[in-house]
C-alpha cells in the first residue's frame, strides 16, 4: 500500500498554474520547460480587458529530475504537488518527458471521501 503522501512523482494542476516561471528558474537540473502566451479577457464589470497567461505546454523530464521537491515547495499557486504515482517507465529517454496531460493525470486525490 503506497501512502497517498508518498513522493512518487511530481504532478501539475494546469488550471492553477499562472506560467510565472518560478519553478522553471529554480529547478536545479533545468528539467522543466514551459510555454505560454497572453490573451486579453474582457470581464463584464471591468473597464479594460485583463491580460492573462495561457499555459500552452509544461514538460518535466523525469530522466533529469532528481525529486528534490524544490518546484513543489516554491510554486506560489500550489499548481505542483507530490503524487504517489510511481510507475514511470519508458523505453526511450524521451519517454520520460511528461507533458500537461500526464502530469495532471497524476494529480493526487488525497481526500477521496471528503470530496464535494
Amino acid at each position: 500500500m503506497i501512502p497517498t503522501e508518498a513522493h512518487g512523482t511530481i504532478a501539475l494542476q494546469p488550471s492553477a498554474c499562472t506560467s510565472c516561471m518560478i519553478c522553471v528558474r529554480e529547478c536545479p537540473t533545468w528539467c522543466i520547460e514551459l510555454e505560454s502566451h497572453t490573451e486579453q479577457v474582457s470581464e463584464p464589470d471591468a473597464r479594460r480587458p485583463k491580460t492573462v497567461n495561457i499555459l500552452d505546454a509544461f514538460r518535466i523530464d523525469f530522466g533529469l529530475c532528481m525529486y528534490c521537491g524544490i518546484c513543489v515547495d516554491l510554486c506560489p499557486f500550489d499548481a505542483l504537488a507530490w503524487s504517489p504515482e510511481h510507475d514511470l517507465a519508458a523505453t526511450t529517454a524521451g519517454g520520460l518527458v511528461l507533458g500537461i496531460d500526464e502530469l495532471s493525470r497524476a494529480w493526487p486525490n488525497r481526500n477521496p471521501t471528503s470530496g464535494s
Binding site: 499562472t18 506560467s19 510565472c20 516561471m21 518560478i22 528558474r25 533545468w30 502566451h37 491580460t51 497567461n53
Partner: peptide, 30 residues
C-alpha cells in the same frame, strides 16, 4: 553545463500578467 545549454528559465517572469512567456529582450542569465 549551464553555460552551454539554453536556459529554460530565460523567458520573462509572467506573474505580473503582462509579459507572456516571451523571451525578454534583455537576456537574463541563469
Amino acid at each position: 553545463a549551464r553555460a552551454v545549454r539554453e536556459w529554460p528559465g530565460a523567458a520573462q517572469a509572467t506573474d505580473d500578467g503582462r509579459q507572456g512567456g516571451n523571451p525578454s529582450r534583455r537576456r537574463q542569465l541563469p
